[in-house]
Nucleic acid binder design. Sequence first.
RNA 1: GGUGAAGUGGCCGAGAGGCUGAAGGCGCUCCCCUGCUAAGGGAGUAUAGGGUUUGUAGCUCUAUCGAGGGUUCGAAUCCCUCCUUCACCGCCA
Length: 429
Amino acid sequence: MLDVKLLRTDLDRVVAKLATRGFSFDGTKFEQLEQQRKDLQMQTEQLQAQRNQSAKAIGKAKAQGEDVQPLLDAVADLGEQLEKAKSAFDQVQQELDSMLASLPNLPDDSTPVGQSEDDNVEIKRWGKPREFDFEVKDHVELSEQRGWYDNEAATKLTSARFSVLKGSMARLQRALTQFMLDTHINEHHYEEVYVPYIVNQDSLYGTGQLPKFAADLYKLEKHDEHDTSDRDLYLIPTAEVPITNLMRAEIVDATQLPIRYVAHTPCFRSEAGSYGRDVKGLIRQHQFEKVEMVQFVHPDESYDALDALTQHAASILEKLGLPYRMMSLCTKDMGFSAAKTYDLEVWLPGQQAYREISSCSNFEDFQARRMMARFRTGQDKPQLLHTLNGSGLAVGRTLVAVLENYQNADGSITVPDVLKPYMGGADQI
RNA sequence: GGUGAAGUGGCCGAGAGGCUGAAGGCGCUCCCCUGCUAAGGGAGUAUAGGGUUUGUAGCUCUAUCGAGGGUUCGAAUCCCUCCUUCACCGCCA
């Protein structure tokens, strides 16, 4: 969420900045609502003050045994007036709140301005795509011919865009997960956390998935139809949600920063609009595994932290020997809550293309403001934290990348050196 | 899932319709006294929002005693719903 004070003092800049994301924000409407809010709030609070005053006077008079009837008569219609003013105020406030909640973050000045993913800026490339002296296969072909990948079984069990993995491929996915976690814990100093895969609405609001992106989420049925509470639960679309929300409504001491968490979780995405893209194979699934890094840092350090975090993700690719390029996402392509995002794209020989395998973002205080995640330096007032996260990495897509990049002419897969300890020492599968 | 108890400021803890934004204690900050591994005295010590303002100063108003509703001129106090915690029972990995 943006700071409402920023909208009040620097509206034109906000409108212009949001326009670079392709988001049109009606500044005039906002100003009108603001003016209404101001008037109604003053009116309401004035009535409340009046009520408080007279209530006190009545109390005093009663204590002294005086006749309070005249005082009561004087405030007879105050309640009604107050109620009217309050409901008008609440309505305007609600309108403002939902307007504010639907505004995406302001892109950082260093974020390239652009209209589509074609305007993303390549920052660097690492590794050279391997040259094959045989015809390369894609991961679907490679895994199906070995009986490792069973799309039909998954369709039978559930529906399209789920998958069943078997044998060495299933194990390889587990090996990748362990390798990623161990690397982040031992070399990059993250603390491993285990978190729920089901979260409530407040958590999804905190990280920005709600209220705007409910269609991408799997929502659980209420198990009790008489339950009138507002307790809808959802499957997590990413570990970012539970991990980042660990800090919701918390105030940590500045000396504890930075805080770095890493977790492995499945991710569940409904993504209603994605049909027709990547229909084959493991690239786009409703359920996939991901290792996620999250950092809570001092505002002065969040951009250094973003560079570091992105490199933490990149180092996994480097250790695996997978060629990648690093992209700075342009304003239009960036996610709702991010101020700046780097994507890592891994080389997939089967597609002859770089494909996204990690997304690392600095949200500045956008998420922190939504969830009131704060820190305190000494005795100072609490300040909003900056939050960051990044995939380190999307395990399913890494699995695809390993299969395709390490394939041999006979259909076998060479095991990358760093994974051998996790594969019982096997050189190839 | 069942039964019972409870949720008050950084922490502990009073409070039972009106002068309570909340006694008292602990902790913390500042000052005074004291020349010593101690004690005493004083002051201060929640958060958010609005108005005023060049101002994160001051003044002022509002809201907040788990959350949301309700009753009332007036609610931490009464009523309803929900959430959470604890205890015991049941069930389970």
